[in-house]
Design a protein around this nucleic acid. Structure first.
Lengths: 204, 204
DNA sequence: AATTTAACTGAATCGCCATTCAGTAACGCG
DNA sequence: CGCGTTACTGAATGGCGATTCAGTTAAATT
């Protein structure tokens, strides 16, 4: 039974945990299932993470950081600020990405009554906003994006970009929920078109 | 120990269940807590609902129907279609309403892996869309609302209204999530203003 | 090679909580 | 008033699943 260093094993377990949550939900998550997914004993999972609660918290953080890293790569790529913005948003979008939406909805619900998880999600959300807002500011600088300076409470381009990022993420989150519960009324193409229109009305 | 008819008691229990979910979340819901809230025995709750699962399903349906009834009243009120639309949306909005958002996020997460709950939520969502879409169609008829007929896949006013309702609800859902996790970046006034702008760009 | 360290396991333990059950008493109805 | 129905209870039961623990063995260290 090939032994691994704690660090490597922890990563494996976190990945397996995320997969398990993705597959069957937080509600029915058992540490024995996570272990079985890797052919390990449940005790080992607890050996590495002390409690199930800590495991779950670490797993969400892990998944969130991974997604953010990917997004940061896209944001640092070549192309105009507006193009990179579209790419990042395309990655966040609830369509055609490997980014899994189920776990986040599950996570939100757990975060409602768990302060630790809640702050994890707040932090992830802030990071997403920062990525978007930076690109928007860059776009304003290069003239690709028209800052609607008339907005109440947004004196600066930074303020506008931040608010704009918040609205975009909110819309994407909401569309994800629609997609999960009413895939009848929201096809992937419609979704893509709607997001495009929303971005136009926000940025152009 | 004042007895009540099954119907009355069931209503009480459903209300208490909703309150309990609202207060501490689905994850930690115990039937004993619901019972205690009413000064009853846990057995009685099971007597009336057979299983905890059935209780939860009934409670979500109950809460959803209540909200919808209220919304239908607003939609049937006096005033222009556009005004009534605003009222209905104001009621759905995650700000200042008694409508509780926490339970819906909890519900979404449970619905992800429970087909019964999922269809309950789909049905509720469809009803909300119908209310909004009807008002939009009415508004188009009276000229208060400008139908963007250029939309792909929306040949008729009905198609436009339906899609429009979907987008509005998505945006509201997403803003609710933002409000719950980042109340720093989303005040109630901002939220109200943003929704107003969104409606303008969708309808005017 | 011997010894220490650290990953790892299987078999208990242990608490929690939905559900069951056998019985009690309030209400309606003749 | 008696009698059946039905709301209601408290004390078991039973299963599930996280966590513990005493030990086992693979790697690292010397």
């Amino acid at each position: 039974m090939a032994r691994k260093s704690a660090e490597v094993r922890r990563e494996e377990i976190l990945a397996a945990t995320v997969e398990e949550i993705e597959a069957t939900g937080l509600r029915t998550l058992r540490v024995a299932d996570v272990a079985e997914r890797l052919g390990l004993s449940a005790s080992l999972v607890i050996y590495h993470f002390a409690t199930k609660e800590a495991l779950v918290a670490a797993a969400f953080d892990h998944a969130g950081r991974n997604d953010l890293d990917h997004a940061r790569n896209l944001a640092a790529g070549t192309g105009s600020a507006r193009e990179r913005l579209s790419e990042v948003i395309g990655w966040y979008m609830p369509a055609g990405s490997t980014r899994s939406w189920k776990i986040w909805i599950d996570g939100w619900s757990a975060g409602l009554f768990d302060e630790d998880l809640k702050s994890t999600f707040s932090a992830l959300d802030r990071d997403w906003k920062t990525i978007l807002a930076d690109l928007i500011v860059e776009g304003i600088g290069s003239g690709e994006v028209a800052s609607r300076g008339d907005e109440a409470g947004a004196q600066s381009a930074d303020g506008f970009a931040e608010a704009c990022a918040t609205r975009i993420l909110a819309y994407l989150d909401g569309l994800a929920v629609q997609l999960l519960f009413n895939s009848d009324s929201v096809s992937q193409e419609k979704l893509r078109a709607w997001v495009g229109e929303f971005l136009t009305s926000e940025l152009d």
